[in-house]
């Protein structure tokens, strides 16, 4: 404004000085007011937009980032579960092996009877002679004849479990009341323990018909 006056007064003839300043003031004031409002508005919009974009980008980046961590975490979980699955199926597969089942069956006192006897329904004829299975007669023999290296750990674990059970039983039997001088954390020598699972040789022959 202060710049406008000398410029205007310098260009207009001296006789008509009074009118132009009035007109000028009004016009300039109005003009400047009108021009400034949109500038602030747009500036605000621009700044806000930039701010919003940056914020959105940061949020997006954070969510992508956390998504990446989540994916990595879930992938790790998949891996861990896969390992658990493998460990479980590995145990299941080797437990279902014929060697293991035969050992278990023998340990439980089961004896194979290889005498098939049939009853023919049409004429009620019995073919074959029924005879009782006897331990030893149809024994499947020693377990190392058809070896299975995958059972080595399993057998060791089973023996350890059997020993632990028999130890516990032995402790219960021999030490009725917890005595102060008996340290409970020391396991009795395995040799003195009675094995919980009967051995195939030592079982009484069950009579089956």
């Amino acid at each position: 404004m202060s710049m406008a006056r000398p410029l205007v007064s310098g260009r207009i003839a001296p006789g008509i000085e009074i009118v132009p300043p009035v007109r000028q003031l009004r016009a300039v004031t109005n003009n400047i007011g009108r021009k400034r409002r949109p500038k602030v508005f747009f500036a605000t919009i621009t700044v806000m937009t930039i701010f919003l974009i940056s914020a959105a980008q940061i949020l997006l980046s954070i969510s992508t980032q956390s998504g990446a961590y989540e994916i990595a975490g879930l992938q790790q979980q998949v891996k861990d579960l896969g390992r658990t699955y493998q460990s479980a199926t590995q145990d299941l597969d080797r437990m279902t092996s014929p060697q293991n089942i035969a050992q278990f069956a023998q340990a439980l006192g089961m004896v194979g009877n290889s005498n098939p006897v049939y009853l023919r329904l049409s004429d009620s004829v019995v073919t074959g002679s029924a005879s009782a299975a006897r331990a030893g007669k149809n024994s499947v023999g020693s377990s190392d004849l058809v070896p299975n290296a995958m059972l080595t750990d399993l057998v060791a674990e089973r023996d350890a479990a059997a020993r632990a059970t028999s130890d516990a039983q032995a402790r219960q039997a021999h030490v009725p009341a917890p005595a102060a001088n008996v340290s409970s954390d020391r396991a009795p020598a395995p040799a003195s323990a009675t094995v919980a699972v009967p051995s195939p040789q030592g079982i009484p022959s069950p009579t089956t018909h």
Binding site: Q90, D93, R94, T96, S97, P98, Q99, V146, P147, N148, A149, M150, L151
Partner: peptide, 8 residues
């Protein structure tokens, strides 16, 4: 490779 049935 694993062979669950061993020598079978």
């Amino acid at each position: 490779r694993a062979y669950p049935n061993g020598a079978v």
